[in-house]
Design a protein around this nucleic acid. Structure first.
Length: 637
DNA sequence: ACCAAAATGAAAGTCTGA
DNA sequence: TCAGACTTTCATTTTGGT
């Protein structure tokens, strides 16, 4: 079996953590669950789902035992078994239950109590979600009892299952739901009377979470944690699972729309809940805030530079790693990313301090931050300097000095035509409303002035230059203009990344072995090359063929001395592959990459689903692979 | 089949004035 | 401090033309 090896490696990394201390280990374990589900989910589903009886595993505690007393070989079997348990659970929960119970579960998942949900549904026989939610909000506002208490109702049947059922049958979720929807009476005095299970766990179970999730979260946060803290933790762990469920079934379109609406309601509800409670929540929150100015630990043009930081122990290499994504992601995304990447605080930097275009990005890395240096010469940092020909035509009422973020799509020729026609009616001084319209469009589409009354979209080669790539980097070889824009829009700003990576030059004077994930058009490789850090071996993982062609062609044209190895699908990269290359290279010095932002960026109106989105969930593969590399390399030393 | 153009908002930040 | 106005956003899907 292909994955046994991989699993062994995962467990080995747990062990390393366990040596440090128990809490570190558990936090590690919790972190790994989602990525692990994915790791199992996409490959071995077909092989294992059917007919496998769930063996009823309390996997946290069993793992704990394993860590304490066992040899490694049994670890991998154990984890394999657990994974199968999880998978069959996934399958069962994705199978459609009675619609009413789905509705019930939906509201339970939002944190309403059973009592309220049942009542609200009864009052809205039509089953209109909106009106049910309205009723729920009203009811819960009237309800003075604390949320935790009221949502802890459990009927006796369930309680029985939660407490003494050490075999979680795969249809657990379903029977659980049926019980909910069919039960008529809810009794508060049935809440707690069991021995072992913590009431909070039961409470979470009553909200629709599985016992494993509830227990893992309680383990992580401690017995006194609030329900909200716990649900946050579980949410992170659930994402991969949700993902798998969403994309396995062909859901009808309107149900997707519904989901977005529901999410919105959920956010509103949470904001409302927080407002309601005030006080304690705010200090416990630990929300990551974007710095202003967004210069991270410093940029070449600013004098204030921080040269020291303390990394968490688990974050310290080898290998060095560098992860990138959009700064303006939905709330909670950066908290999750940071939590997975060893609790390193992200460094948020806007590339407008490096070039003439804004690019607000977050970088999580374990690189040193002292003695950074930029690539010289420094690129021009205003539009006029970067595109000198525009200066002549730039009207005084267009106050822009920087371009907005370079995107994957650009304005059309028809738009620039409309703008020209709107301006031609007037002389040198168009009325304010025309100015306003033109400026608005220019900002939106990053248009620049190339003639009298004439604005234009940026040319692909101009985008290349702005991003720090060699001119014509993406040109030719069968790539269309649209594809060039797209590939460039998804790329690093080379000068920014190079500034951060520059510290590696002294560490690896003889060259560097790089694992480049989500390489795209090779931003990291170009950055290292422009820093004159020799590339010894580069293993580049990139799904798009045109992008791979671009990098290969760049590799050849720049006459690189090292080896370039291309892989396409990151999900196919496993421990075997990694170990083979690690043995042959003697280890990776740097793991670099920015995972897809499609589901995080504000520009996406269709599927801004956060880290659980189809593409952005690949972040977990970045973590999975990084952790594998860390683990394999630690065994070798 | 391919490509360009248009249609499709909302989340979450910053700024500002009271 | 805070409400409200303003700004920005590594995008996806549909349409229409060739």
């Amino acid at each position: 079996m292909l994955h046994v090896r991989l699993l062994f490696l995962l467990i080995a990394s747990f062990k390393v953590a366990a040596i440090l201390d128990d809490s570190a280990f558990f936090s590690m374990l919790d972190r790994l669950k989602p990525s692990f589900w994915r790791a199992k989910g996409y490959r071995e589903m077909d092989d294992h789902i059917s007919g496998e009886e769930d063996e009823g595993i309390d996997w946290d505690t069993e793992d704990e035992l394993e860590i304490q007393n066992t040899v490694t070989s049994s670890c991998s079997t154990l984890v394999t078994r657990n994974a199968e348990a999880i998978i069959s659970k996934e399958e069962s929960s994705s199978s459609a239950g009675p619609s009413n119970s789905n509705l019930v579960q939906h509201f339970l998942g939002m944190g309403f109590s059973n009592k309220l949900v049942t009542k609200a549904i009864k009052e809205n026989v039509e089953g209109d979600t909106e009106s049910i939610l309205e009723t729920l909000l009203t009811l819960s506002a009237l309800d003075n009892s604390p949320e935790e208490q009221s949502s802890c109702d459990l009927n006796s049947h369930q309680k029985q299952q939660c407490v003494d059922d050490d075999e979680f049958s795969s249809d657990y979720d379903e029977s659980f739901l049926v019980d909910f929807s069919e039960s008529d009476s809810w009794s508060d005095d049935e809440i707690t009377e069991n021995g072992d299970s913590h009431p909070t766990i039961l409470c979470l179970a009553s909200m629709g979470y599985t016992m494993e999730e509830a227990m893992a979260a309680t383990e992580r946060c401690g017995p006194d944690a609030s329900i909200e803290e716990l649900t946050d933790i579980i949410y992170a762990a659930q994402m991969a699972k949700t993902d798998a469920i969403f994309f396995e079934e062909e859901k009808p379109k309107n149900s997707c729309v519904m989901n977005r609406k529901q999410k919105r309601k959920m956010f509103e509800l949470e904001a409302w809940k927080k407002k309601k409670q005030k006080g304690p929540v705010t200090d416990a929150d630990e929300v990551i805030r974007l710095p202003n100015p967004m210069i991270g630990y410093g940029v070449p043009s600013e004098s204030s530079v921080i040269t020291h930081r303390t990394l968490p122990d688990a974050a310290i290499g080898p290998p060095f790693f560098y992860y990138e994504n959009v700064a303006l992601a939905p709330k909670g995304v950066w908290e999750t990313i940071s939590r997975f990447l060893y609790d390193i605080e992200p460094e948020f930097v806007d590339s407008k301090y490096f070039c003439a275009a804004a690019r607000k990005r977050g970088y999580v890395h374990n690189l040193p931050i002292n003695n950074r240096f930029p690539i010289l010469p420094l690129p021009p940092r205003t539009i006029n300097d970067a595109l000198p020909l525009t200066k002549k035509w730039w009207p005084p009422w267009d106050k822009r000095t920087k371009l907005n973020c370079l995107q994957t799509v650009y304005g059309s020729a028809r738009l620039t035509d409309r703008i020209r026609k709107a301006l031609e009616k007037w002389g040198d001084d168009p009325p304010l409303h025309v100015q306003k319209f033109v400026i608005e469009q220019c900002r939106k589409w990053n248009l620049v002035w190339v003639g009298k009354n004439k604005v234009a979209t940026l040319e692909p080669d101009e985008v290349e230059t702005l991003l720090g790539f060699p001119r014509n980097h993406t040109r030719g070889g069968g790539i269309s203009r649209t594809e060039r824009y797209k590939s460039l829009g998804n790329s690093f700003q080379v000068d920014t990344v190079a500034y951060h990576l520059s510290v590696l030059k002294d560490v690896f004077p003889n060259g560097i072995n790089v694992l480049s994930l989500f390489s795209g058009i090779g931003g990291a490789e170009v950055a290292l090359d422009r820093l004159r850090i020799p590339l010894k071996n580069v293993m580049s993982v990139e799904i798009s063929e045109v992008n791979r062609d671009i990098v290969r062609s760049w590799w050849e044209q720049t006459k690189q001395k090292g080896n370039l190895i291309h892989l396409s699908d990151i999900q196919h990269v496993n421990g075997d592959t990694l170990e083979r290359y690690i043995v042959s290279f003697g280890g990776f010095d740097l793991v670099v990459g920015g995972s897809p932002c499609n589901n995080l960026t504000g520009g996406n109106r269709v599927s801004r689903d956060g880290l659980e989105g189809e593409h952005s969930a690949l972040f977990y593969d970045y973590f999975r692979i990084l952790d594998l590399v860390k683990c394999i390399m630690s065994r070798q030393n």
